[in-house]
Write a protein that binds this DNA or RNA. Structure first.
Lengths: 336, 336
DNA sequence: CTGAAAGCGCTTACAG
DNA sequence: CTGAAAGCGCTTACAG
């Protein structure tokens, strides 16, 4: 046994077979007799042998590693998606490499290069958008690429999208139907494709209905931003009585500002709709009506495609439906 | 260029040097002339060459991969720690492999085996406790082991602990000093070392003060459990007026149950102390007084040890101090 | 079904 | 400083 631990050679010697035999014993479907396999497995067990995936990955075209590239890992929604993804990946026999792309602007690119270095089977991009040039390099390296909620398309990659725009429209319709008269939209300055689409859907519907809306957009996508937006909104002389927030974190902040700083009642004085359905949205202090992002379905779609045969005729895009989770932050329309 | 992408051979040919030279160009401190290195780098750049870490890992004793083994990835505290860890690891030039150990009881062991398969430089265990036998195998394979907040010790591994027990005692003292008379302890049935230590500290202090306390312990460590514990606590004829929850999630649930289901005022009627200082604890709806887990410091200690020289004389254990974050959920003692 | 041999992409003594 | 050669641990045609 060398410094690298137990190797196939050790097992081969112990089992009295060739190195090739032990390799075959660990390869499902390889041509090996049941008896030989049994001998090998026994020796492997006593020696504590584990196939070296590094060496295997060097030969085979797959390493079993999938890179997960994301920013703001600790955010409720992001961490839920990451958890679902890593779990599904494991069930499929893969392993997740987590790459934080928080830092600089080029960090998605750096992350992708990192993935190439380890010859990951695939990269799943949750944040940011790599340059076409680089994604082509990935594809050329035999790597699969999944883009979750990105707006641009990249030849050969798989796109998973939610209908954010439709949700924005639904938010408007819901608030209008609840009898809200002065509508507001709260979003951050992050400018991600998802947030923009939600905003645009809301705007579109408002324009179509000939309704003027107030818009607030500042800072990062956080609770604190929601707090300051809520404060600004409630400080207006003509306070809005309905607000769509492009994210739950924002909505929760808006609610807290309205309630605790202005004594505004929800939903009596103000109706609020969020997006994501993070766990906190259903907590009793909030009871927020929001669009639920089906994290499990997204993860399933992703892993299915990654482990599937990916026939070239297959569609390279999937749309996951979002649903409005009705709770108590939107008032019921008064019956006349 | 083979199927595996651009290799050192391709770069060597393009730069007119040997394969060894390109290897040296990518090895800091290797004996190579500045001129040769420049030629290699240029060729590598145009060809888009990335050192294959799989192959490199096969030769060198390090792969640059660190396995992060944890359960309940999407929980606020856990995801914050994971985010800090992955960020620090990246800054140190390492990369994180995320292994979810949610599933079965043996999943920590499976995770460790997975880590061995990929010859990770180290494994950081955040949840569960692997058998001694297996940790020895890891160590024998040259893998370093970090255990965060585990109670048992494993020869050769590095332990990072918080003084949970002291925090439990402080919680008691704080509640007592606030003038609370009927004290309760709320915890889950998870039975992790950290939770038990916090509970024991609280119990000890109460016993030392000759004070009887009410204890509630059920379910998983979640907001929902907090809700049901809060409900049970407030349903008692002699309601407690001070409660220490071993986790913020539990505390938040207790607060919501008390306020929304029983109209109990916090802190006037009930003082609450949590543990973790998750982001939600400081949200305006809660303003929870809690012990802050210094996630950044934990991550720093972990990565420092992993990347350090680990002289055999070094202490293999570090205690990170926890601090009480004073907020509004504990009443100020009435001046006499 | 089985083993000897070649090769994946890299690094590292070994000579020069 | 530089290149030819050996070797890391594995898999996979190739014969038998």
């Amino acid at each position: 046994m060398g410094r690298g631990g137990v190797s196939a050679k050790d097992v081969a010697k112990a089992a009295g077979v060739s190195r090739a035999a032990v390799s075959r014993a660990f390869t499902p479907g390889a041509s090996i007799s049941a008896e030989t396999r049994k001998k090998v497995m026994k020796a492997a067990d006593t020696l504590g042998y584990q196939v070296n995936h590094l060496a295997r990955g060097l030969i085979r075209s797959e390493t079993g590693i999938v890179a997960l590239i994301a920013a703001e890992l600790a955010t409720p929604y992001r961490s839920a998606l990451l958890a679902a993804l890593s779990e599904r990946l494991q069930e499929a026999g893969k392993v997740a490499m987590l790459i934080n792309s928080d830092r600089s602007d080029d960090s998605v690119e750096r992350a992708l290069r990192q993935a190439i270095s380890y010859r990951t089977d695939a990269a799943v991009v949750l944040s940011g958008m790599p340059k076409t040039e680089l994604t082509e390099t990935c594809l050329k390296n035999g790597m699969r690429l999944v883009l979750i909620n990105r707006d641009e398309y990249r030849e050969g990659s798989y796109l998973i999208r939610l209908d954010d725009r439709a949700a924005g429209r639904t938010a408007f319709a819901t608030l209008a139907a609840a009898g809200c008269r002065r509508l507001a939209l709260a979003t951050s300055q992050a400018g991600t494709p998802s947030l923009s689409a939600r905003r645009d859907g809301f705007r579109d519907a408002a324009a179509a209905a000939g309704v003027e809306i107030v818009e607030e957009a500042t800072g990062p996508t956080s609770y604190e931003t929601g707090l300051s937006i809520g404060t600004r909104l409630m400080s207006q002389t003509d306070r809005p009585d309905g607000v769509f927030c492009t994210t739950d974190l924002l909505a929760l902040g808006v609610m807290d500002a309205a309630r605790h700083r202005f004594g505004v009642r929800i939903p009596e004085d103000l109706s609020v709709i969020g997006f994501d359905d993070v766990p906190q949205a259903s907590w009793e202090s909030y009871d927020l009506t929001t669009f639920s992002q089906p994290v499990g379905e997204i993860a399933d779609a992703c892993v299915d495609w990654l482990t599937g045969d990916a026939m070239s005729g297959d569609p390279l895009q999937t749309s996951i439906p979002v649903q409005l989770a009705w709770r108590g932050s939107v008032r019921k329309n008064q019956p006349f």
